[in-house]
Amino acid sequence: MAASIKDVAKEAGVSIATVSRVLNNIDVVNEETKKKVLEAIKKLQYRPNIVARSLKTQRTSTIGMIIPDISSQFYPEIVRGAEDVANIYNYNIMLCNTDLDLDKEMEYLKVLREKMVDGILYMSNSLQPKIVELIEQLQIPMVLIENIDDQKKFPSVTIDNESAAYDAVNYLVQKGNKKIAYIGHKNNEGNVNSFRYLGYKKALKENNMKLDEDLIYCEGLKVEDGYKGIIKIIEKQKIDAVFCGSDECAMGAINALRERNIKVPEDIDVVGFNDVYEASVFYPKLTTIAQPMYDMGSVGMRMLIKIINKQKLGQSHYILPYQLVERDSCKK
């Protein structure tokens, strides 16, 4: 039979109220008494009744995480960073995968509200007006990871995606490349991928290179998108480099080129984005923009826990540093 709070109080020789104060981190219990209570909890393997406790405190010690695509190699490291911090502060995580589906995103937001989560870490490729409106209605503590809303209403953690893409394309230009293709996303929803496309365009313009729609393929960021995209591009134009909006996309492009006896980097330079683990073991090893994925998760979670506990944030919008990692998919 599971131990009760009454059993803990009896073992420690204190009142039930004292045990409750220790469990709720109320600083009126002296260290010696607190130590006795914690030792009794450990000895009896006591676990608080979360349902009863949440009804009283209006807290569940649970944080929701909404991610766009669990199959992507990008998000697991963010989740790991967030979970490590959540564990330090004794929060549980409820993970929701939306498959880049707007209706799913909206439904999960409502479900997490019904489950009385204390806050939400929200990851999405875009923040459509419907989502922003719903978040405001639900009034749940929220931190955005990977994205930022237009009016900066919600705290966020991201990198400067436009500058990162700009640097990647400039790097390709400095290698002497004249025809640089782009595979990824572009739209008018202000999402992170559209920022990468803007960086691509900016770099071309500043290097007096014409924007050629035949060199652009914007259908997605998965392996198959890179594979299909590069085939479609090289059927129309001869290129000497390609910038991809994700590492998976870059790997798909390289596979398609290899099947056609086009060598990377001897014939075509390829740059990816994110620096997932596979980028360092794929052949050829990918030159890519490295995002601090673990830090994005851990910083976002620390911000959210501060908001939940009504503590002041050092800053509301963190733009973390990125790095261009040079490997073997570009000419030396």
Rank of each mutant, 00 (worst) to 15 (best):
G297H: 00
N87W: 03
S61F: 10
K6S: 13
F154G: 01
I230H: 00
T33F: 11
I93R: 03
D212G: 07
I233E: 02
S20M: 10
G245W: 06
K130H: 13
K310P: 02
K178A: 03
T98Q: 04
A253Q: 03
C244E: 03
F243Q: 09
T62C: 13
A86G: 01
A168I: 05
L324N: 00
I231M: 12
V111Q: 09
V14A: 12
E219M: 12
R21P: 08
S61H: 08
A40C: 08
Y318M: 12
P284K: 10
M65I: 15
N274E: 15
L198A: 15
G314T: 13
S54Q: 01
A203W: 00
R196K: 14
G226E: 03
K331Y: 07
K285N: 10
V111Y: 10
D247K: 06
G176C: 09
T62G: 04
L23P: 09
F154L: 14
T158S: 15
L286H: 03
N24M: 07
Y197C: 07
S316R: 14
Y197E: 09
N255W: 04
E105R: 06
Q174M: 13
P76R: 11
V276C: 09
V85M: 01
I78P: 03
G119M: 08
I140F: 08
F273N: 02
V169R: 00
S4L: 08
G297K: 02
I145R: 02
F282M: 13
A241K: 01
P265H: 10
A9Y: 12
I239M: 09
Y46M: 10
I70E: 06
Q315G: 10
S246R: 05
I78W: 00
A279K: 00
D160E: 14
G272A: 11
F273K: 04
S15K: 13
L144V: 07
K236P: 05
V270M: 06
M142K: 07
L320A: 11
L324I: 11
E107R: 12
G13Y: 05
N193I: 00
V29K: 03
I262W: 05
L95Y: 05
D101T: 14
N261W: 07
R47T: 14
I305C: 01
E248R: 08
A40D: 02
R47Q: 13
N193T: 10
A52L: 04
K6P: 06
S61I: 01
M65N: 00
D103P: 02
E162Y: 06
C218Y: 02
M116Y: 04
K236M: 11
Y75C: 04
L134W: 11
L215Q: 06
A3Y: 05
G252V: 05
I145P: 01
Y166C: 02
V143H: 07
I180V: 11
D149C: 09
N255C: 10
K222E: 12
L198M: 13
V117F: 07
E278I: 15
D149Y: 07
P155F: 03
K228T: 11
G176L: 06
A181E: 04
F74T: 04
A12L: 10
S163Q: 15
L286M: 14
A40P: 07
K115F: 11
T158M: 11
K312H: 07
I234D: 05
N191Q: 08
P321K: 14
A82Y: 00
A203H: 01
N49Y: 11
T287Y: 01
S280H: 09
I307H: 06
Y197H: 06
